[in-house]
């Protein structure tokens, strides 16, 4: 069974009659890293939001199976509990809510849904501090409110920290590379690579080959106008980098 199977998915804005996903098909296997590339506004973030259950979008057709189970009817937290993780293109700030409080709440919410007890605080601290260090996240950042006052790159690293703590089954990284400096890019990529395993899958949304130099994808999909219009190996990304989208988009149209 595939890890993620999206069949003929169409989705529109909940408040307007604007269709964004137009019969999208996509399969991600366990252990696979799938890259999604595509022009601005083609619907990449929308796809990630729809999978995570954001209410701004309405699914009008199709299904999305995670481990064979349709997740589209579930609330966002239930999807998270099933192992779906989204690293946001624009992480949200939550003033007043301490980073540690937040991480702990998220981790324990997941543990409880899996029938585990809350993680004892010392163990939790050790875990967070360890991961934070690997990702170059300072103690000061851990003391602040969630994402408040973080730079663009810091926010992205913070997303990866959360991923590392929650150990999801399927992680969708939406332009996690944008805003990262070269060193941070490498750190983040190392973080992701360390988590690669035979039963975990990644969907990496990016505009640049550079990230894919570090996180080697197994497949590359091209999303345009709300559909996957081409799928290929890593070489497809290189080709896009060299030629742009005009060719394939034109052919597909």
């Amino acid at each position: 069974m595939s890890l993620l199977e999206i069949k003929n998915l169409t989705a529109k804005l909940a408040e307007e009659d604007k269709q964004i996903l137009n019969g999208l098909n996509l399969t991600v296997e366990k252990g696979q890293v799938a890259a999604i590339m595509g022009p601005n506004g083609s619907g990449k973030s929308t796809l990630s939001y729809v999978l995570a259950g954001r209410e701004d979008y309405e699914v009008t057709n199709g299904e999305a199976l995670l481990d064979g189970e349709n997740i589209l009817e579930l609330s966002p937290d239930e999807r998270a509990a099933k192992g779906l993780f989204l690293a946001f293109q624009y992480p949200i700030e939550i003033p007043g809510v301490g980073q540690m409080t937040f991480l702990k709440a998220a981790l324990n919410a997941q543990r409880r849904k899996n029938g585990l007890d809350d993680m004892p605080t010392p163990e939790f601290m050790k875990l967070v501090n360890g991961r934070a260090k690997e990702l170059g996240i300072s103690q000061d950042m851990l003391r602040r409110s969630v994402n408040v006052g973080f730079s663009g790159g810091e926010k992205k690293r913070n997303e990866i920290l959360q991923m590392a703590l929650l150990q999801p089954k399927l992680a969708i990284l939406d332009e996690t590379d944008s805003g990262l400096d070269i060193d941070a890019l490498k750190i983040v990529a190392d973080g992701v690579n360390a988590m690669r395993s035979p039963d975990r899958g990644f969907v990496v949304i990016t505009h640049y080959q550079r990230l894919l130099d570090y996180i080697k994808p197994d497949v590359v999909h091209v999303l345009s106008a709300g559909r996957i219009i081409k799928t290929g190996g890593p070489e497809l990304a290189l080709e896009l980098e060299a030629k742009g989208y005009a060719d394939i988009v034109g052919k597909a149209a």
């Binding site: 701004d56 937290d77 989204l86 949200i92 007043g96 809510v97 709440a105 998220a106």
Partner: peptide, 26 residues
């Protein structure tokens, strides 16, 4: 904020937990 709610719930918090967390931040 709906964005904050969604962010918290994406990380696995239920609606009630998310509200409690955000209100406590407020």
């Amino acid at each position: 904020s709906e964005d904050q709610m969604f962010y918290c719930m994406q990380r696995g918090l239920t609606q009630e937990e998310a509200i409690a967390l955000i209100v406590n931040g407020f």
